[in-house]
Amino acid sequence: MDDDLDSMTREALIDEIKKLRAGIRDHRDSTGHDLCWHHPALWSLLPEKTPPSLEVPEWPQFMRGCIKYRQSLDEQCPDAIRIAKEFGDA
């Protein structure tokens, strides 16, 4: 799957690493309501260009997952700043 790396020069590998790090930082630095979205830009950093096969939960299951995710942020980031900004507000 990653055979393309074997033929890359040192410079090309460094460029690839920088591109991947930038993508990871963009994902890591998501905040506010952007935490709720999937990030296809991150997937596009992979060399294989296969469209994702998404499975979308029904609303009740989805909302339970959102609540669990938000609870995990309380546990993992208890000191994070809390905001009251609504989704879509500029």
Rank of each mutant, 00 (worst) to 15 (best):
W59Q: 07
G88N: 11
G88W: 15
A84G: 06
Q61H: 14
F87H: 04
C77P: 00
K68G: 03
R64C: 09
D34T: 12
K18D: 11
L46S: 01
R82W: 02
S30K: 15
G65L: 12
L20N: 07
L13S: 01
R25E: 02
G23C: 06
P57C: 05
D34R: 15
H38T: 15
M8I: 00
L5D: 01
K49D: 15
A80S: 11
H27Y: 15
P52F: 03
C66L: 12
D89Y: 03
I83H: 12
L42P: 03
C77W: 10
P47E: 04
D89N: 02
D6V: 15
D79Y: 09
R25A: 02
E48T: 06
I67W: 08
A84I: 06
D89P: 02
R21M: 03
M8Q: 04
H39Y: 13
H39F: 14
P57N: 12
Y69M: 13
R82H: 11
E86Y: 05
C77D: 06
T31G: 10
P40N: 09
R64G: 10
G23R: 09
E48S: 08
I67M: 08
E86M: 08
T9F: 00
R70I: 05
A80F: 06
A22R: 00
A41G: 05
K18E: 13
